[in-house]
Design a protein around this nucleic acid. Structure first.
Lengths: 215, 215
DNA sequence: TACTTGTCCTGTCATGCCGTCAGCTTACCG
DNA sequence: CGGTAAGCTGACGGCATGACAGGACAAGTA
């Protein structure tokens, strides 16, 4: 389905080529973690990978193109976030546990990939559809599951019909993503991780069920 | 207090100089709206302003420095967001109105300054303290007011003591900021502005008061 | 008006990154 | 061992960066 990995000039990448390519991606990932996106240069990535800029351009059209590649990879992993919601219960004590685990899982994922996610977020906010699609892919895996949860609670009459399930789920997920992206900021401001998580869980619970949690 | 506007080489900028400087800032602002941050070049800004790159460097150390300048200006305006919350009521029907107006005001502000806020957000996420400070200045104007509101409701016994007022306020504001930054994204995904706002207001209301709104 | 002073702008230059190409080296295969 | 395709890089024109010195300009002074 994905076809073979190809170089920019159309050749099929073999064993060695793929290794080089991967090394470049790894080095780019590291650079993104340590320096501002704006200052990441092709030549630096190449140097770090022990190769030349020309080699970089053999595999990627530009820095952005390579970032997209990394992001795509991460998005695949992000699809697994669905399991934080799907099949979970939103009733009684179980609902609280579901909320907590969702928040935990989400924050962990974000912390793990923060550098790339920053860039994806920027690209998406700037209106680049490719980045936006990737961001969607990750967030939707959670958003869709949450939307379903709300809808189900609505059919059971446990949540007001007026609530737009999609908007609610989307807002909650956006909140999680934003807070996750500024976790360091929160701690600097004096809010500790320990009190941040329960409050996020509380908001999730309130948003989905419309009620205070039973702990 | 702010002292005089100075050039990079220490001279005091006069009438004409300040005009040029401002023009450069304006043009930079426009460029940020129309092209990715990574691709904004000094030479383009200078050309757009009808001057030369050398002139740009007379007033700013680099693109980032100029962006900080614009952001600082915006932050001053952002301080006015406090009024969306301070002195408002969080009881009964008034609480719902307060929530709605907060969401409205916030989204408007973000839409107005979206380009520059994107960059500030990125800088803050990357750990740049200067950008982080600006982001704080804007968000705190709302966060602090909201924190006070929660604390007041807590002393009246209307909100659980366990809730961390700061964390709750911070999370809600982060949500608003994130959703605001991806407004276009939401509409693309099929969530209309009309249903987005009430749901955000609902979440704000739930988060602050812990109860469903009375409309 | 001519002169002086300090602000303001730009031409120019060395430096460094970008992105491409031709050509060399390496690996694989019959 | 030759052929073929993959893999890599030196080299190059082009462009942005950032610094400087010097010229243009406005305003005050005699």
């Amino acid at each position: 389905m994905t076809g073979q990995v190809r170089t920019v000039d159309g050749r099929v990448a073999g064993r060695r080529g793929q290794a080089t390519r991967q090394k470049l991606l790894d080095c780019l990932g590291e650079m993104l973690s340590s320096s501002p996106y704006r200052d990441v240069k092709v030549i630096d990535v190449a140097r770090k990978a022990g190769t030349s800029p020309a080699t970089f351009y053999q595999y990627f059209p530009d820095v952005e193109g390579a970032v997209l590649e990394i992001a795509e990879e991460m998005a695949k992993e992000g699809a697994g976030l669905t399991e934080l919601v799907s099949g979970r219960s939103w009733v009684g004590k179980a609902a609280w546990q579901t909320s907590e685990e969702l928040v935990d899982g989400f924050l962990d994922f974000w912390r793990k990939h923060d550098a790339i996610l920053r860039v994806v977020d920027l690209g998406a906010a700037e209106g680049d559809k490719r980045f936006y699609k990737i961001r969607m892919k990750i967030l939707n895996s959670v958003t869709n599951s949450l939307t379903d949860a709300v809808k189900e609670l609505q059919t059971k009459g446990k949540v007001d019909k007026e609530v737009s399930a999609a908007a609610m789920a989307g807002s909650l997920v956006a909140m999680l993503a934003s807070v996750a992206g500024h976790q360091k900021g929160f701690t600097t401001w004096g809010v500790k991780q320990a009190e941040l998580k329960p409050n996020l869980a509380l908001l999730v619970h309130l948003g989905i069920t419309g009620k205070k949690p039973v702990r």
